[in-house]
Design a protein around this nucleic acid. Structure first.
Length: 514
RNA sequence: GCUCCGGUCGUAUAGCCUGGUAAGUAUCCUGGCCUUUCGAGCCAGGGGUCGCGGGUUCAAAUCCCGCCCGGAGCACCA
């Protein structure tokens, strides 16, 4: 792991804990607390999943226990796993700061599930059903056993072998767990444990077409949680009905079910979605560039935009483990992130949509701007820019947005430099004359402050905005010292993360938030 | 068919289990501060009859009953 993602190891730092987790139920019953996070590698991780991850991980650490990562990749047909997502998920987990102690991949454990299935048949707890789903549904609605249910154990073992040998095609046979046929929830009645998926058609990324009989979620997860000695399951409440189903299996096997904590899911606020399948589909439709498109709530996208994992962590701890649904608001995440990033982000000048500013009558040979990297932290130093004055004139760029400030005709201060008075302005050029030097003078006149970039030594910059549009402009020369991955603040613009350098030298940033 | 959750400042939420005398936080809006960001930060202020009706109680956002509205989930997906 260290070799694969070395850059992440460097970033790991101690975290301050603001919120503490309530104790785990019945923690004292177990000598070692074991939790797990069990994703399907059919997509990258997103914000909503961070909840189960942090909670499971934090509890394991809190009790000096074990945190398991388990890939639940048992549906090569509808929620098809993809090989690149196994690593993407591992990467996301490390980024979040959640190291796992053990890892399993369910598609490599099918023989184990078959064994348990056989045992269940032998003890009369499961049977192979060859009804088509309509027929079965009619029986089950009436709380009646289907024609298969009461065949002999030998018959079912025979059918089971036939299943494993490929004697049935998709949909022709399933293994069902015997439950109470009059259970109030019809979806619980004799639920499906094993079904057939033709992997000639739907190849599995890990085991190819070696197996055609696949466990359902409740079967595989139920078995694994027991075998892996998981003591506490923390997951979304959409799985709550599954507990009742699994309980039937646990009773047949005389196993004890782990403690469960279910929480409500995150809903996206406004447009957007937290649904993996929806995001995947929208990417295929070309609505988004990729799974790290800034509009998406994936961890990959948040990371690229400069959101710190600790901001996500705090948001989750703040929310706790309630059953109620929570609405995800970007604003809220930004507030958390800003608190983390603001005290450490260096400040730079970036002029969006530049227009030219020509200043005349400067009574100096040269001027130097010395501006701290951070307004409240002189300890991290200053950025100094020396500008030569030629014939009393200087040219620089300012943002088109500030054109309006100049247009009013009053005195304006160029931050860290001197004060000017505009004399004329056209569409993309503003002319001004020297007014005075000091900040005090500007303050006295209540002059507006604007930032600027000297014409020599500009750095072309593109900023990818949260809506995936792009802001284009020039950065000051010193922007070249920003490291890849670093989050800085472009003053009067917002926080951004340096993403990459273009072949032509342009720097690409991702907008984080104001 | 079955299950779960919610309705508290414009917005998102805490508090409700263990009733009690500023209904907290973030965002938002307004004003101020900052030897220099009126797009960050800091400070102050603004803003809520806690969905509706009834009951219990000296006292209810908090407990009980009823009603209305909204959201989420399960069924050979995970």
């Amino acid at each position: 792991m260290e070799e694969r993602f070395p850059e992440l190891l460097l970033e790991e730092k101690p975290k301050e804990k603001e919120f503490k987790l309530p104790p785990l139920p019945n923690a004292e019953k177990y000598s070692t607390i074991v939790t797990r996070y069990a994703p399907n590698p059919d997509f990258v991780l997103h914000f909503g999943q961070a909840r189960a991850i942090y909670l499971s991980h934090d509890y394991a650490r809190m009790y000096n226990g074990v945190f398991i990562l388990r890939f639940e990749d048992t549906d090569p047909r509808i929620k098809k796993p993809r090989i690149e997502f196994y690593d993407a998920i591992r990467y996301d987990l490390i980024w979040l700061g959640c190291r796992w102690d053990r890892e399993y991949i369910q598609s490599r454990r099918l023989e184990i599930y078959y064994e348990v299935a056989r045992k269940l048949i032998e003890i009369g707890g499961a049977y192979v059903c060859t009804c088509n789903s309509d027929t079965f549904r009619n029986f089950i609605r009436a709380s009646k056993p289907c024609l298969c249910r009461d065949l002999t154990i030998e018959d079912h073992l025979e059918r089971f072998d036939k299943m494993l040998e490929g004697g049935y095609r998709e949909g022709e046979a399933v293994l069902r767990i015997k439950t109470d046929l009059s259970h109030p929830n019809p979806s619980v009645r004799d639920w499906v444990a094993l079904r057939i998926i033709d992997t000639k058609l739907y190849r599995h990324p890990i085991v190819g077409d070696r197996y055609d009989v696949w466990p359902t979620y409740n079967f595989a997860a139920g078995i694994d949680d027991h075998l892996m000695e998981v003591t506490h399951i923390i997951r979304g409440k959409e799985f709550i009905v599954g507990v009742e189903k699994q309980l039937y299996m646990y009773r047949w096997l005389d196993w004890e079910y782990p403690e469960c904590i279910h929480y409500g899911k995150w809903m996206m606020i406004g447009s957007g979605t937290m649904s993996k399948s929806r995001m995947l589909k929208d990417i295929q439709l070309g609505l988004y560039r990729s799974w790290d498109d800034p509009r998406l709530p994936t961890l990959a996208a948040l990371r690229r935009r400069g959101i710190q994992p600790e901001a996500i962590h705090r948001m989750i701890l703040e929310l706790g483990v309630k059953m109620s649904e929570a609405r995800f608001s970007w604003e809220n995440l930004y507030a958390h992130n800003r608190r983390i990033v603001d005290p450490i982000a260096r400040r730079f000048f970036y002029v969006e949509d530049p227009i030219k500013l020509k200043i005349r009558s400067i009574p100096l040979e040269e001027v130097t701007a010395k501006i701290p990297f951070h307004p409240n932290r002189e300890d991290i130093g200053y950025r100094e820019t020396r500008i030569e004055v030629k014939g009393g004139e200087i040219e620089m760029y300012i943002s088109r947005r500030d054109r309006g400030i100049l247009a009013s005709g009053g005195v304006v201060r160029l931050i860290g430099l001197f004060n000017i008075k505009p004399t004329s302005l056209s569409d993309d050029t503003v002319e001004a004359v020297w007014h005075s030097r000091t900040y005090e003078e500007a303050a006295k006149l209540k002059a507006r402050l604007i930032h600027w970039v000297s014409v020599d030594g500009i750095v072309p910059i593109r900023v990818v905005m949260p809506d995936s549009s792009e802001s284009i402009g020039y950065g000051e020369k010193l922007c070249r010292m920003i490291a890849i991955g670093e989050v800085v603040q472009f003053e009067r613009f917002g926080f951004v993360r340096f993403d990459s350098k273009q072949p032509d030298g342009a720097m690409v940033f991702y907008y984080t938030h104001d």
